[in-house]
Amino acid sequence: MIFFISNVRIYPTVANLTYRMSTDSQQTPYHPALEFKSSTFTVPVLVLSSNDMPSIEQQLQEKISQAPEFFKNSPLVFDLQELNKHELDIDVSGLTGIIRHLGLLPIGIRGGTPQQNQQAIALGIPVHSIHGSSAPTEAQKTKKITPELPEPQTDLNTTLLMTQPIRSGQRVYAKGDLIVLAQVSAGAEILAEGNIHVYGSLRGRALAGVQGNPDARIFCTDLEAELISIAGTYKISEDLDESVRHKPVQIYLENQALLIKDL
Protein backbone atom coordinates (compact mmCIF):
# COMPACT_ATOMS: atom_id res chain seq x y z
CA MET A 1 0.00 0.00 0.00
CA ILE A 2 1.42 3.38 -0.99
CA PHE A 3 0.27 6.49 0.73
CA PHE A 4 1.04 9.96 -0.40
CA ILE A 5 -0.21 13.48 -0.76
CA SER A 6 -1.11 14.78 -4.15
CA ASN A 7 -3.03 17.62 -5.67
CA VAL A 8 -6.54 16.68 -6.52
CA ARG A 9 -8.53 19.28 -8.36
CA ILE A 10 -12.07 19.59 -7.17
CA TYR A 11 -14.11 21.87 -9.30
CA PRO A 12 -17.72 22.40 -10.20
CA THR A 13 -18.74 21.57 -13.75
CA VAL A 14 -19.83 25.16 -14.33
CA ALA A 15 -17.41 27.66 -12.83
CA ASN A 16 -18.49 31.02 -11.50
CA LEU A 17 -22.12 30.22 -12.04
CA THR A 18 -24.54 32.46 -10.24
CA TYR A 19 -28.16 31.68 -9.61
CA ARG A 20 -30.79 34.29 -10.04
CA MET A 21 -33.78 34.34 -7.74
CA SER A 22 -36.74 33.22 -9.77
CA THR A 23 -39.19 35.67 -8.24
CA ASP A 24 -39.98 38.78 -10.22
CA SER A 25 -36.46 39.63 -11.22
CA GLN A 26 -37.55 42.69 -13.16
CA GLN A 27 -38.44 44.72 -10.12
CA THR A 28 -36.26 43.49 -7.32
CA PRO A 29 -32.59 44.35 -7.63
CA TYR A 30 -30.32 41.43 -8.43
CA HIS A 31 -28.69 39.93 -5.30
CA PRO A 32 -26.81 36.72 -6.01
CA ALA A 33 -27.34 34.33 -3.13
CA LEU A 34 -24.45 32.10 -4.09
CA GLU A 35 -21.55 31.70 -6.40
CA PHE A 36 -19.48 28.78 -7.66
CA LYS A 37 -15.73 29.10 -7.54
CA SER A 38 -13.01 26.78 -8.69
CA SER A 39 -10.36 25.85 -6.16
CA THR A 40 -7.49 23.39 -5.76
CA PHE A 41 -6.96 21.37 -2.59
CA THR A 42 -4.18 19.16 -1.43
CA VAL A 43 -5.69 15.88 -0.32
CA PRO A 44 -4.02 12.62 0.73
CA VAL A 45 -4.50 9.84 -1.80
CA LEU A 46 -4.62 6.25 -0.62
CA VAL A 47 -3.21 4.04 -3.35
CA LEU A 48 -4.08 0.42 -2.81
CA SER A 49 -1.96 -2.41 -4.09
CA SER A 50 -3.75 -5.22 -2.28
CA ASN A 51 -7.44 -6.11 -1.87
CA ASP A 52 -6.91 -7.95 1.40
CA MET A 53 -9.14 -6.04 3.82
CA PRO A 54 -7.56 -7.11 7.14
CA SER A 55 -4.05 -6.14 5.99
CA ILE A 56 -5.35 -2.84 4.56
CA GLU A 57 -6.96 -2.06 7.90
CA GLN A 58 -3.86 -3.05 9.86
CA GLN A 59 -1.39 -1.12 7.68
CA LEU A 60 -3.60 1.94 7.52
CA GLN A 61 -3.92 1.88 11.29
CA GLU A 62 -0.10 1.76 11.56
CA LYS A 63 0.29 4.74 9.21
CA ILE A 64 -2.26 6.74 11.15
CA SER A 65 -0.64 6.00 14.48
CA GLN A 66 2.57 7.61 13.18
CA ALA A 67 0.83 10.97 12.85
CA PRO A 68 -2.57 10.79 14.51
CA GLU A 69 -3.16 14.54 14.48
CA PHE A 70 -2.32 14.80 10.80
CA PHE A 71 -4.85 12.13 9.87
CA LYS A 72 -7.61 13.04 12.30
CA ASN A 73 -10.75 13.73 10.25
CA SER A 74 -8.56 14.13 7.19
CA PRO A 75 -10.27 14.03 3.81
CA LEU A 76 -9.06 11.18 1.64
CA VAL A 77 -9.25 10.02 -1.96
CA PHE A 78 -8.71 6.33 -2.58
CA ASP A 79 -7.10 5.13 -5.77
CA LEU A 80 -7.93 1.71 -7.21
CA GLN A 81 -5.98 1.99 -10.43
CA GLU A 82 -3.15 -0.31 -9.33
CA LEU A 83 -5.63 -2.92 -8.15
CA ASN A 84 -7.63 -2.82 -11.33
CA LYS A 85 -4.49 -3.07 -13.38
CA HIS A 86 -3.90 -6.44 -11.74
CA GLU A 87 -7.60 -7.28 -11.98
CA LEU A 88 -8.03 -7.42 -8.21
CA ASP A 89 -11.57 -6.46 -7.28
CA ILE A 90 -12.40 -4.77 -4.01
CA ASP A 91 -15.60 -4.15 -2.13
CA VAL A 92 -15.94 -0.35 -2.17
CA SER A 93 -18.48 -0.20 0.64
CA GLY A 94 -16.29 -2.42 2.85
CA LEU A 95 -13.25 -0.25 2.12
CA THR A 96 -15.22 2.91 2.84
CA GLY A 97 -16.29 1.39 6.15
CA ILE A 98 -12.67 0.74 7.16
CA ILE A 99 -11.58 4.25 6.18
CA ARG A 100 -14.44 5.88 8.10
CA HIS A 101 -13.88 3.60 11.08
CA LEU A 102 -10.26 4.78 11.33
CA GLY A 103 -11.37 8.41 11.51
CA LEU A 104 -10.71 9.45 7.92
CA LEU A 105 -13.31 11.01 5.64
CA PRO A 106 -13.37 9.54 2.14
CA ILE A 107 -14.20 12.25 -0.40
CA GLY A 108 -13.45 10.55 -3.65
CA ILE A 109 -12.58 7.49 -5.67
CA ARG A 110 -10.07 7.41 -8.50
CA GLY A 111 -9.16 4.80 -11.08
CA GLY A 112 -12.19 2.63 -10.28
CA THR A 113 -14.13 0.39 -12.65
CA PRO A 114 -17.63 1.54 -13.72
CA GLN A 115 -19.15 -0.83 -11.14
CA GLN A 116 -16.86 0.47 -8.37
CA ASN A 117 -17.64 4.06 -9.37
CA GLN A 118 -21.35 3.29 -9.23
CA GLN A 119 -20.95 1.73 -5.79
CA ALA A 120 -19.04 4.82 -4.63
CA ILE A 121 -21.69 7.21 -5.90
CA ALA A 122 -24.34 5.16 -4.11
CA LEU A 123 -22.31 5.77 -0.92
CA GLY A 124 -22.17 9.51 -1.67
CA ILE A 125 -18.52 9.46 -2.75
CA PRO A 126 -17.67 11.46 -5.89
CA VAL A 127 -15.67 9.96 -8.74
CA HIS A 128 -12.43 11.73 -9.74
CA SER A 129 -10.78 11.14 -13.06
CA ILE A 130 -7.07 10.57 -13.37
CA HIS A 131 -5.55 13.46 -15.30
CA GLY A 132 -3.88 12.71 -18.60
CA SER A 133 -5.14 10.21 -21.13
CA SER A 134 -2.17 7.88 -20.76
CA ALA A 135 -3.12 7.37 -17.10
CA PRO A 136 0.37 6.93 -15.65
CA THR A 137 0.77 4.85 -12.53
CA GLU A 138 1.06 6.70 -9.27
CA ALA A 139 4.68 5.67 -8.83
CA GLN A 140 5.56 7.39 -12.11
CA LYS A 141 3.57 10.43 -11.12
CA THR A 142 5.50 11.06 -7.94
CA LYS A 143 8.77 10.94 -9.82
CA LYS A 144 7.53 13.59 -12.22
CA ILE A 145 7.39 16.14 -9.41
CA THR A 146 10.81 17.44 -10.52
CA PRO A 147 9.99 18.27 -14.12
CA GLU A 148 12.88 20.64 -14.77
CA LEU A 149 15.67 18.57 -13.31
CA PRO A 150 17.38 15.41 -14.41
CA GLU A 151 15.64 12.63 -12.52
CA PRO A 152 17.64 11.84 -9.41
CA GLN A 153 18.28 8.19 -8.74
CA THR A 154 16.77 8.01 -5.31
CA ASP A 155 15.71 5.02 -3.33
CA LEU A 156 13.66 5.24 -0.21
CA ASN A 157 15.42 6.99 2.67
CA THR A 158 18.40 8.13 0.63
CA THR A 159 19.66 11.68 0.64
CA LEU A 160 19.33 13.92 -2.39
CA LEU A 161 22.17 16.42 -2.84
CA MET A 162 21.71 19.52 -5.00
CA THR A 163 24.83 21.59 -5.76
CA GLN A 164 23.34 24.13 -8.18
CA PRO A 165 20.93 26.93 -7.25
CA ILE A 166 17.26 25.92 -7.23
CA ARG A 167 15.76 28.61 -9.45
CA SER A 168 12.32 30.18 -9.46
CA GLY A 169 9.78 27.75 -10.89
CA GLN A 170 11.82 24.64 -10.15
CA ARG A 171 10.59 21.90 -7.84
CA VAL A 172 12.74 19.34 -6.13
CA TYR A 173 11.32 16.35 -4.30
CA ALA A 174 13.45 14.10 -2.11
CA LYS A 175 12.20 10.75 -0.87
CA GLY A 176 14.59 11.02 2.09
CA ASP A 177 16.60 14.03 3.22
CA LEU A 178 17.39 16.94 0.93
CA ILE A 179 20.65 18.90 1.07
CA VAL A 180 21.04 22.03 -1.05
CA LEU A 181 24.53 23.55 -1.26
CA ALA A 182 23.34 26.68 -3.06
CA GLN A 183 20.52 29.14 -2.81
CA VAL A 184 16.83 28.37 -3.20
CA SER A 185 15.30 31.26 -5.13
CA ALA A 186 11.97 32.90 -4.48
CA GLY A 187 9.34 30.98 -6.44
CA ALA A 188 11.19 27.67 -6.12
CA GLU A 189 9.80 24.78 -4.08
CA ILE A 190 11.76 22.09 -2.28
CA LEU A 191 10.03 19.12 -0.68
CA ALA A 192 11.43 16.23 1.32
CA GLU A 193 9.93 13.30 3.15
CA GLY A 194 12.79 13.74 5.62
CA ASN A 195 14.85 16.75 6.70
CA ILE A 196 15.88 19.71 4.57
CA HIS A 197 19.28 21.44 4.79
CA VAL A 198 19.99 24.61 2.81
CA TYR A 199 23.53 25.99 2.87
CA GLY A 200 22.65 29.19 1.05
CA SER A 201 19.79 31.67 1.14
CA LEU A 202 16.42 29.98 1.47
CA ARG A 203 14.03 32.31 -0.36
CA GLY A 204 11.54 29.83 -1.83
CA ARG A 205 9.20 27.34 -0.19
CA ALA A 206 10.58 24.52 1.91
CA LEU A 207 8.38 21.61 2.99
CA ALA A 208 9.89 18.89 5.15
CA GLY A 209 8.19 15.70 6.33
CA VAL A 210 5.68 15.93 3.49
CA GLN A 211 4.45 12.39 4.12
CA GLY A 212 3.48 13.35 7.63
CA ASN A 213 6.73 12.83 9.53
CA PRO A 214 6.46 15.32 12.44
CA ASP A 215 10.10 14.75 13.43
CA ALA A 216 11.45 16.19 10.19
CA ARG A 217 13.36 19.47 10.49
CA ILE A 218 14.48 22.28 8.24
CA PHE A 219 17.98 23.73 8.67
CA CYS A 220 19.14 26.77 6.76
CA THR A 221 21.94 29.33 6.93
CA ASP A 222 19.81 32.29 5.83
CA LEU A 223 16.06 32.23 6.37
CA GLU A 224 14.13 34.37 3.87
CA ALA A 225 11.59 31.71 2.91
CA GLU A 226 8.20 32.35 1.36
CA LEU A 227 6.81 29.38 3.25
CA ILE A 228 8.13 26.75 5.61
CA SER A 229 6.23 23.60 6.50
CA ILE A 230 6.78 20.49 8.54
CA ALA A 231 4.34 17.60 8.17
CA GLY A 232 1.69 20.02 6.92
CA THR A 233 2.07 22.65 9.65
CA TYR A 234 3.22 25.77 7.90
CA LYS A 235 4.17 29.41 8.30
CA ILE A 236 4.18 31.97 5.52
CA SER A 237 6.77 34.69 5.12
CA GLU A 238 4.50 37.30 6.67
CA ASP A 239 4.29 35.30 9.90
CA LEU A 240 8.05 35.00 10.29
CA ASP A 241 9.42 37.04 13.14
CA GLU A 242 11.95 39.73 12.17
CA SER A 243 14.34 38.29 14.78
CA VAL A 244 14.80 35.08 12.77
CA ARG A 245 14.89 36.59 9.30
CA HIS A 246 18.26 36.39 7.52
CA LYS A 247 19.54 34.15 10.33
CA PRO A 248 20.89 30.62 10.43
CA VAL A 249 18.04 28.68 12.03
CA GLN A 250 16.46 25.30 12.48
CA ILE A 251 12.74 24.74 12.24
CA TYR A 252 10.90 21.89 13.93
CA LEU A 253 7.57 20.85 15.38
CA GLU A 254 6.88 20.80 19.09
CA ASN A 255 3.37 20.16 20.39
CA GLN A 256 2.06 20.76 16.88
CA ALA A 257 3.59 24.24 16.84
CA LEU A 258 6.26 25.27 14.38
CA LEU A 259 9.32 26.54 16.26
CA ILE A 260 12.15 28.53 14.70
CA LYS A 261 15.36 28.52 16.72
CA ASP A 262 18.76 30.11 16.08
CA LEU A 263 21.52 27.68 15.22
Binding site: E148, L149, P150, Q164, P165, I166, R167, S168, G169, Q170, S185, A186, G187, A188
Partner: peptide, 18 residues
Amino acid sequence: VRDSDRMLGILSSKSRRA
Protein backbone atom coordinates in the same frame (compact mmCIF):
# COMPACT_ATOMS: atom_id res chain seq x y z
CA VAL B 1 14.97 39.63 -11.59
CA ARG B 2 12.38 36.98 -10.71
CA ASP B 3 11.77 36.20 -14.41
CA SER B 4 15.51 35.98 -15.06
CA ASP B 5 15.81 33.52 -12.21
CA ARG B 6 13.07 31.42 -13.79
CA MET B 7 14.85 31.55 -17.14
CA LEU B 8 18.10 30.44 -15.49
CA GLY B 9 16.28 27.41 -14.12
CA ILE B 10 15.09 26.54 -17.61
CA LEU B 11 18.57 27.06 -19.09
CA SER B 12 20.07 24.66 -16.58
CA SER B 13 17.47 21.94 -17.07
CA LYS B 14 15.78 22.10 -20.47
CA SER B 15 18.57 22.94 -22.88
CA ARG B 16 20.24 20.45 -25.20
CA ARG B 17 23.37 20.60 -23.05
CA ALA B 18 21.33 19.70 -19.95
